[in-house]
Design a protein around this nucleic acid. Structure first.
Lengths: 261, 261
DNA sequence: CGTTATCTTGATACGCCTCAACGCAGGTGG
DNA sequence: CCACCTGCGTTGAGGCGTATCAAGATAACG
């Protein structure tokens, strides 16, 4: 809201609650540095000590898991505006790798900022817990997808979910959207071989259900697909009614005392 | 801590940090009623409005997901002492079903207790976020298991992880442990047919790698298995160094004012 | 313009599912 | 006490879905 140069976390969280000026200022202060990252560059490596959370201001990132036989899979896709690192915050070291999938900008929110957040801005802390809970729901859907669907439905589900999440992020952009993944990577995300992904995509095209103009995809039979896979969009509603009140703790300057150098 | 009749959440969370007397009292107060639940009884049904979190004081519970064609899968297993409901706390309605897998006792922690927790006991709030983050790691491992392993490794992983988590809960109970699941249910958990689960289990027995005395299982080749599937135990270390300090807010009576009828 | 990733397509192999049947235990009612 | 039923475990035969292997076409790139 208002001034204080539109932080990425602020815009992300404002989707759910109306942040007070104090809350906005607190966030913006702690997240003022932006780090550009090129496609393919690591954001978090396995074994890294965890240091707070990060906001993906622009670009896409993915969570990867590598096995010793050289394979790797994609466990999670982060879209612009999403909060990364909530899964690793409880462990001292990262279990998984986070990599930029496209060029982008990340805003680290250092861990030393978390303690004052919990003490002075309880509503923000609650918001963070709620965001983490949505992450869990997303992961459950993914696990459900991997465990119970056949290859065709896995692919359909993957594309439907991408589209749906992009719509939430960018607000209503229809059935055409960008998919910055190679077929190999799509295979890693849905647990299939790249070559079978290819055959399925081609069959979708031949059936007139999608159009592909790399890197864009258009879903021509979205309604049918959503029935096919019983698609439910889990990212629509957040329940914020249980949140504590904002309780602004005083003048904005208060923040300075929270970082005792 | 001391007195104040050993709450289940207290004992669960004490594993990670030393709770102050105030913190213990706050938790114990809000969670004083215990609800026994019989095996098979629902704990949360799809579409239920979410109402806070629950502690599984005793018994096992599972998160299930049902598809319209009658299949269902098991997305998560909760062991005694674990916190349930952190995944649904961000949504207004539950996406998945939670069912008792054995007889047990659950302690609801109503949502109206969460707001005062965030306001007055910031360290407990941080703890909750960290627990949720461990849940996410568990789910990622599960998804990785479903997406990348063949049937043999999935089953081995399932048993290894169960054993490991039971060891954390009960502290060092060796290679023999209880598995209160039918083969159908094991299949639902690892994404296989019950009948293929059966064949694999039998082959393990024939190979001398496990012993089965229902409902107990003994892993005779645990080391070999852990190498086979590259097993890593993700539940060992929680990082609590970033937590805010406990800041006890005053006399314990303070709690009463937090529940204005 | 070579070099390397990525996509495409076909032939073949095999892992796991499906279907079918039986044994066994526990519960229920006659 | 027996007849029945239902749920779970066990085992085999056969088939389908997806991986694997191989090779060429295309596109990205320095």
């Amino acid at each position: 809201m208002s001034s204080s140069y539109e932080s990425c976390l602020v815009s992300r969280l404002s989707r759910f609650v109306d942040l007070t000026e104090h809350e906005c200022a607190f966030i913006a202060e702690l997240e003022k540095d932006e780090h550009p990252r090129q496609k393919g560059r690591p954001v978090v490596s396995v074994g890294d000590p965890t240091d707070g959370i990060m906001v993906l201001k622009s670009g896409w990132a993915v969570v990867k898991y590598d096995t010793s036989d050289g394979r790797s899979q994609i466990l999670r896709v982060y879209l612009p505006g999403e909060v990364m690192g909530l899964a690793e915050i409880g462990s001292s070291h990262a279990n998984h790798r986070i990599v930029m999938q496209t060029d982008g900008i990340i805003c680290p929110f250092p861990r030393k900022g978390l303690a004052p957040m919990f003490s002075d801005y309880p509503r923000l802390a609650a918001l963070l817990l709620a965001v983490g809970s949505l992450d869990q729901i997303a992961l459950r859907h993914h696990a459900g997808c991997l465990g119970a669907m056949d290859a065709t439905d896995k692919l359909k589900f993957f594309l439907l979910q991408l589209r749906s999440r992009l719509e939430v992020a960018n607000v209503g952009l229809g059935n055409r959207f960008q998919v910055p993944f190679s077929q190999v990577e799509i295979g890693q995300a849905v647990g299939l071989t790249s070559i079978y992904v290819n055959k399925l995509l081609r069959s979708f095209v031949n059936a007139g259900e999608i159009e592909i103009e790399r890197p864009y995809v258009r879903l021509l039979a979205r309604d049918k697909w959503e029935k096919d896979v019983e698609f439910v969009d889990a990212f629509v509603d957040m329940d914020t009614t249980w949140f504590p009140s904002a309780l602004d703790p005083g003048p904005i300057g208060k923040l300075d005392t929270a970082e005792p150098a």
